[in-house]
Computed example of a mutant assay.
Amino acid sequence: MNIVAIAGSVVGSKTKTAIQQTVKILEQKYPDHEVMLLDLAAYDIPFSDGRNYLDYQGDAKYVTEQIMKADVLMIGTPIFQASIPGTLKNLFDLLPTSAFEGKVASMVVTAGSQRHYLIPEQQLKPILTYMKAQVLQQYLFIEDVDFYRQEITNDDVFYRMERLVDDTMTLAKTYQQMQQEKDAEYGF
């Protein structure tokens, strides 16, 4: 499977730290799969202007093509001002509405307080569902208190992160098997 992890912000370090750790767990537990980390801070992506994603050039074309090739998306996002960052929303706007059809998506969320726990439910899940992703119901929510000097310090976070990775891969394998069975019904 082709797995793309996204660090969905151009500022801050906590989301990048969390998604890098998630990628590390993926690579250790599932070495037979291709894993790629797309850190949006490393790319120059213009604002969406409604063009087809294939009509963009440079970093925008590269990032969107990698996402379109993915079987699994692990989306890392901070919560800023009770919302997902504009850079992540812009990335979604660059893609067609059915971009995540046939893909499994899960979320790694960092936030300043527990008060932001439902933001992924209210903002990110509806976008992913609208774009036709098979969304893992639970997500990893990490607070500021779980970090110290750009490192995760709460052992429970590591446990929940491993669980998220395993659940994401289980859903992806199950979905892939369902698709294969459905395709086999056609007999051609």
Rank of each mutant, 00 (worst) to 15 (best):
residue 4 V to G: 10
residue 6 I to L: 01
residue 8 G to F: 02
residue 11 V to F: 13
residue 13 S to R: 06
residue 14 K to Q: 15
residue 15 T to E: 00
residue 15 T to A: 02
residue 16 K to D: 04
residue 17 T to L: 04
residue 18 A to H: 06
residue 18 A to K: 07
residue 18 A to S: 10
residue 21 Q to S: 05
residue 22 T to C: 15
residue 23 V to K: 12
residue 24 K to T: 14
residue 25 I to P: 12
residue 25 I to Q: 14
residue 27 E to W: 07
residue 29 K to S: 15
residue 29 K to C: 13
residue 29 K to F: 13
residue 30 Y to A: 07
residue 30 Y to N: 13
residue 30 Y to D: 10
residue 31 P to R: 07
residue 32 D to W: 10
residue 37 L to M: 09
residue 37 L to E: 02
residue 39 D to T: 06
residue 39 D to H: 10
residue 41 A to N: 10
residue 43 Y to P: 05
residue 44 D to M: 10
residue 46 P to T: 08
residue 48 S to F: 11
residue 48 S to G: 08
residue 48 S to C: 11
residue 51 R to M: 10
residue 52 N to D: 14
residue 52 N to L: 07
residue 53 Y to L: 01
residue 53 Y to G: 04
residue 53 Y to W: 07
residue 55 D to C: 14
residue 56 Y to I: 08
residue 57 Q to V: 07
residue 57 Q to Y: 09
residue 57 Q to F: 09
residue 59 D to Y: 00
residue 61 K to P: 07
residue 61 K to H: 15
residue 62 Y to N: 05
residue 62 Y to I: 00
residue 66 Q to S: 07
residue 68 M to V: 03
residue 69 K to S: 09
residue 69 K to C: 02
residue 69 K to W: 03
residue 71 D to N: 15
residue 72 V to Y: 03
residue 73 L to C: 01
residue 75 I to P: 11
residue 77 T to S: 15
residue 78 P to E: 05
residue 79 I to D: 04
residue 80 F to T: 11
residue 80 F to L: 08
residue 80 F to V: 11
residue 82 A to Y: 04
residue 82 A to D: 05
residue 84 I to L: 14
residue 88 L to V: 00
residue 90 N to C: 12
residue 90 N to W: 13
residue 92 F to E: 03
residue 95 L to C: 04
residue 95 L to F: 03
residue 96 P to G: 03
residue 96 P to Y: 00
residue 97 T to G: 14
residue 97 T to Y: 15
residue 101 E to C: 07
residue 102 G to N: 07
residue 104 V to D: 02
residue 108 V to Q: 02
residue 108 V to K: 03
residue 110 T to L: 01
residue 110 T to P: 00
residue 111 A to V: 08
residue 111 A to Y: 06
residue 113 S to K: 08
residue 113 S to N: 11
residue 115 R to H: 14
residue 116 H to E: 02
residue 118 L to N: 03
residue 120 P to W: 09
residue 120 P to A: 05
residue 122 Q to K: 02
residue 125 K to P: 03
residue 129 T to R: 10
residue 132 K to E: 12
residue 134 Q to Y: 01
residue 135 V to A: 02
residue 137 Q to C: 04
residue 138 Q to T: 15
residue 139 Y to E: 03
residue 139 Y to I: 01
residue 141 F to C: 04
residue 143 E to W: 06
residue 145 V to H: 11
residue 148 Y to W: 11
residue 151 E to C: 05
residue 152 I to D: 05
residue 153 T to I: 15
residue 155 D to N: 13
residue 158 F to H: 06
residue 159 Y to D: 14
residue 161 M to I: 01
residue 162 E to N: 11
residue 165 V to P: 15
residue 166 D to K: 06
residue 168 T to W: 00
residue 169 M to P: 08
residue 170 T to C: 13
residue 171 L to T: 07
residue 171 L to E: 09
residue 172 A to W: 00
residue 175 Y to M: 15
residue 177 Q to F: 09
residue 178 M to N: 12
residue 179 Q to N: 04
residue 180 Q to I: 08
residue 180 Q to P: 08
residue 180 Q to A: 13
residue 181 E to K: 09
residue 182 K to S: 14
residue 183 D to Q: 07
residue 183 D to V: 07
residue 185 E to S: 12
residue 187 G to M: 08
residue 187 G to L: 13
